[in-house]
């Protein structure tokens, strides 16, 4: 294609990732997380909150995925801040994040997942865990119309190849993101409102 790539995949460098479990209906839990992470865990299903580089993705009614810049220490401070039923697990080694941008980024998603990524159903601030090719992934809609796709490290070679293959017909370019930013140069998709 002469008018530039239709799909650009940029892979994030190392980041910190944590799986958080607890009672989201408890204000003390939400406040405790917000105090340490700087962003509160979303209560609305299939949404994510961001503050700067830190994110909290809804994974389930009592489960969130947190991410922050590489080297951040959340585990001990969160244990200190949260009381009662909760769990915090470092999963930094398990996650790979790629950002898909370009006019046809959505087409790559449609080749990969049965979920409905139409902007009306999947506006910025939404996220979804779903089948992705023959693996699974967390897909998040960004304010700049790009998508973040988070998947397990062991599937990374397969999925990088899959995405490149799916994007080829639209013109595909592969780049990288800085180590600190899952998606650089973008506005915050959803304000922290609780």
């Amino acid at each position: 294609m002469s008018d530039g790539p239709g799909v650009v995949m940029r892979e994030s460098g190392a980041r910190g990732w944590w799986n958080l479990r607890g009672d989201g209906d408890e204000p003390r839990f939400r406040d405790g997380v917000a105090a340490v992470v700087g962003v509160s865990p979303p209560i609305e299903p299939c949404t994510w909150h961001a503050a700067g580089d830190r994110r909290a993705y809804w994974l389930g009614p009592d489960e969130w995925l947190l991410t922050a810049e590489h080297g951040t220490e959340f585990e001990s401070p969160l244990r200190g801040a949260l009381h009662g039923r909760c769990s915090i697990v470092d999963v930094s080694g398990a996650q790979i994040l790629v950002n898909l941008s370009g006019a046809q980024a959505g087409e790559v998603l449609r080749k990969s997942s049965p979920y409905d990524f139409h902007p009306r159903r999947f506006p910025p601030g939404r996220c979804v865990q779903t089948n992705f090719a023959k693996a699974t992934a967390l897909v998040a809609a960004n304010a700049d119309a790009s998508f973040d796709v988070v998947f397990r490290r062991s599937y990374a070679d397969y999925l990088r190849g899959w995405i490149a293959d799916a994007g080829r017909e639209y013109g595909f370019l592969r780049g990288s993101l800085g180590t600190d930013h899952p998606t650089r140069r973008q506005r915050q998709p959803a304000q922290d409102d609780d």
Binding site: P45, L59, G60, P61, E63, Q129, T130, N131, T136
Partner: peptide
């Protein structure tokens, strides 16, 4: 069970 989704 929502295997590929929320796992509930």
């Amino acid at each position: 069970v929502h295997t590929a989704g929320c796992r509930r």
